[in-house]
Computed example of a mutant assay.
Amino acid sequence: MKARKIVDEMDSYVPGKSQDEIAQDFNLNKEDIIKLGSNENPWGPSPKAMEAIKREINSINRYPESQLGELVLQIAEYSGVDDSQVIVGGDGADEIIDVLAKTFIDAGDEFIVPLPSYMYYEYLLMQYGAKPVYARWDLEKNELNVNSIYDAITDKTKMIFLCSPNNPTGTLIDKEVLVDIASKNPEILIVIDEAYFEYSEVTNKDLINDFNNIFIIRTMSKVLGLAGMRIGYGLACPEIIEYMRRIKPVFSLTRLSFAAALNTFKDTEYIEESIKKGIESRQYLYDEISKIDGLYVFPSKSNFMLIDIRDTGFTAGQLALELMKKGVIVRDCTSFKGLDEYWIRISICTLEEDKRFIEILKEVLA
Score class of each variant (00 low, 15 high):
M50Q: 14
Y63S: 03
L73C: 12
N61P: 05
I75L: 15
K48F: 05
D83E: 09
I75K: 09
I57Q: 12
L73F: 07
Q74V: 03
K48G: 10
I60K: 06
A52N: 01
G69F: 07
I57V: 05
E65R: 09
S66V: 02
D82W: 06
I75N: 09
S79R: 14
A49P: 01
G69N: 15
A49D: 08
A76T: 05
G80P: 08
L71S: 02
M50D: 11
E56M: 08
N61E: 04
E51S: 06
M50R: 14
D82P: 01
A76M: 03
I57W: 02
E51C: 03
S66F: 01
R62A: 11
K48C: 08
I60W: 10
A52W: 01
E51P: 00
Y63H: 05
I57M: 13
V72I: 15
D82L: 13
S66K: 10
R62V: 11
S66R: 07
E70G: 14
P64L: 12
L71Q: 07
P64H: 04
A49R: 05
M50W: 09
Q67P: 00
V72S: 04
E70R: 15
L71A: 03
E51H: 02
Y63C: 07
A49N: 02
D83Y: 11
R62E: 15
M50C: 14
R55F: 11
E77Y: 08
M50P: 03
I60M: 02
A52E: 06
P64Q: 01
